[in-house]
């Protein structure tokens, strides 16, 4: 494939990708009430279960909690207010996604820091390796090789 044809092909791909990004980012229709309830319910831990969310659990307490979330939304409460209300009653461990303030910040920040640090380390190492000068023959080396190549006088 010629260079210009290749460039054109990749350019075309780039345009398609931009189109995809636009398509994803385009503001979508507002979520329905049931979608909203489900989205919030996914954040709360069902108390009768082993780590399942309120959205996924089939227990009566989870069903009641989903109903309650709907009632609160109808009352006009915001997501934050609903979260705060449940944390108030059940404690912080009702949230399946740890809050990003306080000690919870660590659990979000540490992995990002580790991966970034590791990435920087790999990048630096790769740069260092590719910067190391390749050995180039000097004139002295050429002379040595020529000397060795001259046939030795036989006695």
């Amino acid at each position: 494939m010629t260079t210009s044809a290749r460039r054109l092909a990749w350019l075309g791909l780039g345009i398609i990708v931009i189109g995809i990004v636009v398509g994803i980012a385009w503001p979508s229709a507002a979520e329905s009430r049931s979608e909203h309830v489900r989205r919030l319910a996914l954040e709360f831990r069902c108390v009768d279960c082993e780590g399942l969310s309120v959205a996924e659990s089939a227990t009566a307490s989870a069903a009641e909690q989903r109903r309650d979330i709907g009632i609160r939304l109808d009352r006009g409460e915001s997501d934050e207010q609903i979260r705060a209300a449940y944390v108030e009653s059940f404690g912080e461990n009702v949230l399946l996604r740890p809050a990003s303030n306080g000690i919870g910040l660590l659990v979000w920040a540490l992995p990002i820091a580790v991966v970034l640090l590791g990435g920087v380390g790999v990048f630096v190492a790769l740069r260092r390796w590719s910067r190391q000068p390749r050995l180039v023959a000097t004139d002295a080396d050429d002379a040595l090789v020529a000397e060795l190549r001259t046939p030795v006088d036989d006695d």
Binding site: V47, A60, S61, E64, R67, S89, F90
Partner: peptide, 12 residues
């Protein structure tokens, strides 16, 4: 009873 069990944040 269900709303009472939620209002009292019962855990079991």
């Amino acid at each position: 009873a269900k709303s009472a069990t939620l209002a009292y944040a019962t855990r079991g």
